[in-house]
Design a protein around this nucleic acid. Structure first.
Lengths: 263, 263
DNA sequence: GAGTGGTCTAGACCACCTT
DNA sequence: AGGTGGTCTAGACCACTCC
């Protein structure tokens, strides 16, 4: 059998017209399947939390052996885009109904298990539509002057304000995001983004520094000005690897720490 | 064919003698192969940087199909214990001759690529054998009062002292570690551990906080007392998941940041 | 050309969940 | 019982590396 797909198959061998096979342009079948699955995910054909079709069904749809779709799904599951559950099916990953309440939050209490603090108390301070500052526009791929949504909020654990966040979102995809929506909602903000705007935050990069609390941050976090804080700048991406959120957080670390696994 | 191995096969079905199959005790063949490969790695049968036998050879040795050893190797490669190179073979991961000079160091310069700073200038401040403090002993699984090696060092980038590290190692496995050895060596410290002591650091956990520089750290890092610093406490493990190193680092972050990928 | 890892297939069987 | 994902096999062929 040929290693390319019937209908939407990308070129799999060096272009016959050109004499310059600069890029080998070889992509395995399962990678093509993976790309097709990714398209279905980003098109919303299967929504977060829902099951995708079974492996045999997908194999039939793509005219491919089950082993090949298995390998495609394996990679998507390794990237946490899909979730396999033996005997039940394969499900689209979601930030809602997750056992860990905040999938991307790496702050843990110093003592006890990750959820020892109980649920976070959340307080939205503001939600405004502004012209994106230059650095924000750059990070989010906006044109300078484009409008963006800025959200300020504080998370408290056990009554102690611990995280102050400044969140920037591109204005167009997030049209209709209001303070009411944010205030009434409970559960992770990323779950709300999935429900209300069909935007799934799939991966993120964080840049961490140690900074001194300025007077404003110090007041909101109830610490002395100059207290060392973790500065966590997160850029979150959707399926298409499009940056969709810039989040600047200040974390108190007297009773918590940022945890990371290396390998 | 049965799903257990001829010679050293762990029980694969509920024990016939007991009526309490509390743990299903089912482990797939490829997991058993993986465990055998891990033993060979930790026994030093194949050393860091060296190739392991080919898939067909391993399949013959274990009386198993190539696909099964493939799956075992796949998982070890995903954990960064092995490195596959098409056409050449599968190699034992190493901290030496790695393209990235420090596999576990997540500190990046704010501008430019990760290696824009050039090689780090390293200075060993001290290397002593001491009785392990209680917290160190606990972390390393030592008895209180056991002897440990403490190393202090500073890393500088572009002439600017940036990292101050206090490293604790269990005394017995690291018998013979001296200041001379550390000073004369070039290349990552973990590579020296592999060569001299046959100990491979395979994964690590880091706990990060923001702290103020105390007078001593401030002097060694050439900053003002009270300057916010990243406190990075790393516990590094060998193959057997045995903690083998406790490393407490203070990072300056005026021109660098700690980078992390979330998914 | 020979050896290595990488892909793809087809079929059998197993473990888990639901009905 | 029937569906789902999970394991294992055997064989064919492909891409990459080295001689």
């Amino acid at each position: 059998m040929s290693t390319s797909l019937p209908a939407p198959a990308p070129a799999n061998s060096p272009e016959p017209g050109t004499g310059l096979p600069l890029a080998p342009a070889f992509s395995p079948l399962y990678q093509q399947i993976k790309a097709l699955l990714l398209h279905s995910l980003q098109n919303g054909e299967w929504k977060p939390g829902e099951p995708i079709p079974s492996e045999v069904e997908l194999a039939a749809r793509f005219r491919v052996s089950q082993g090949t779709v298995r390998k495609a799904i394996d990679e998507l599951a390794a990237d946490n885009l899909l979730l396999r559950r033996q005997g039940k099916g394969t499900f689209v990953a979601t930030h809602a109904e997750q056992h860990v309440s905040y999938r991307f939050l790496r702050l843990h209490p110093d003592h006890g298990n990750p959820d020892a603090d109980g649920p976070a108390e959340r307080q939205i301070l503001s939600c405004q539509r502004l012209r994106a500052p230059a650095d924000v526009a750059t990070a989010l791929g906006l044109r300078s002057g484009d409008t963006a949504v800025q959200v300020l909020r504080v998370l408290a654990f056990q009554g102690r304000p611990t995280i102050l966040e400044q969140i920037w979102l591109p204005g167009t995809p997030f049209k209709g995001l209001t303070l009411e929506l944010l205030t009434q909602d409970q559960g992770p903000m990323y779950a709300l983004f999935e429900r209300q705007f069909g935007l799934s935050m799939v991966r993120a990069e964080e840049k961490i520094k140690a900074v001194a609390a300025d007077p404003d941050a110090a007041e909101r976090l109830a610490v002395a000005t100059g207290t060392p804080l973790l500065s966590v700048e997160r850029l979150a991406y959707t399926y298409q690897d499009t940056p969709m959120e810039l989040r600047r957080g200040l974390y108190r670390t007297e009773h918590h720490h940022y945890r990371n696994q290396l390998s």
